[in-house]
């Protein structure tokens, strides 16, 4: 596994973006959840059954992990938008000259995958949405709890997210997942959720996704109460050809909370995509 930085112009401003990659083959770009970073995919990057066929690439979004915020961040009220997120993904893939990568995203990464399927299906070999839905009923209505001086944001984000992890998750993986949330910068998780909540209703549009142009796989954990199996079922029902999997003993962070269980579900999907490619 190798980590590097690259420079991207995003929204007309220079950004220094960190990414890691491992493996050889067709590119598989991984998008982390809100308020976390690319380390969520570290197990995928050390899985020989994945890396012998795939070049797995995961970047830290600006303000996340090792990607610093752009200059001037200190006076900004960060809000992730759909347009900015799409721009980031396309700019990153362009900078690495990734030809029709497969994109796998979780949570906000899963939702943006739906947007990619709508906006630019020809640019991707296949799209995989984990814990993704066109719409989820919110389980919170006041995200200001996540960013205020009298509540420790990291402790709260971590404690809130703990409930989205399945009880079967191994303790080490569970707490590693939560550590990433505890490490988030001030207001970053809240800013990411703006995209999820304020711009995240795609119900009227997902029916236009054409899976014949770009296959779409949706996988959701049975213990995820943020994006529930029913949320994903409803989305899959709106998209002709979408492939749906409900994953047992998994929650909202399948790749990091229980990597061994998750690979049982992901490997067949990756094999199917590879088979379709060579067919």
């Amino acid at each position: 596994m190798v980590g590097r930085y690259l420079h991207l112009d995003l929204g007309g401003r220079p950004h220094r973006v960190y990414f890691e990659e491992a493996g050889e083959g067709w590119p598989l770009v991984c998008l982390h959840t809100a308020g976390a970073d690319g380390r969520q995919f570290r197990h995928l990057m050390t899985d020989r059954d994945v890396t012998r066929h795939w070049r797995v690439v995961a970047f830290d979004m600006p303000r996340h992990g090792k990607s610093l915020p752009p200059a001037g961040w200190q006076d900004e009220d960060y809000r992730l938008t759909t347009d900015a997120y799409v721009e980031l993904i396309l700019a990153f893939c362009g900078a690495l000259a990734l030809e029709r990568p497969v994109v796998l995203g979780c949570s906000i990464g899963g939702k943006i995958v739906l947007e990619l399927a709508l906006r630019a299906p020809e640019r991707f070999r296949a799209l995989i949405g984990l814990e993704a839905a066109a719409y989820q009923t919110p389980w919170y209505d006041d995200t200001s709890w996540l960013h205020r001086p009298d509540v420790h944001g990291g402790e709260l984000c971590s404690a809130l997210m703990s409930g989205l992890i399945a009880p079967q998750a191994p303790a080490e993986a569970r707490w590693e997942t939560l550590w990433m949330y505890a490490q988030g910068g001030p207001g970053v998780f809240r800013g990411d959720l703006h995209f999820y909540r304020a711009e995240g209703n795609l119900r009227d549009r997902v029916g236009r996704i054409e899976t014949a142009r770009c296959p779409l796989y949706l996988l959701t954990g049975e213990y995820d109460f943020s994006c529930t199996p029913d949320d994903t079922r409803e989305t899959a029902a709106r998209i002709r050809g979408a492939r749906l999997t409900i994953m047992k003993e998994l929650g909202h962070f399948p790749m990091s909370e229980h990597p061994q269980r998750f690979r049982e579900y992901l490997l067949p999907v990756l094999e199917e995509i590879r088979g379709a490619r060579s067919a």
Partner: peptide
């Protein structure tokens, strides 16, 4: 080993 929905306070709330 609680069932989905009963594994967390906020899950039960939702």
């Amino acid at each position: 080993l609680p069932a989905p929905g009963y594994h967390d306070l906020f899950a039960m709330k939702k």
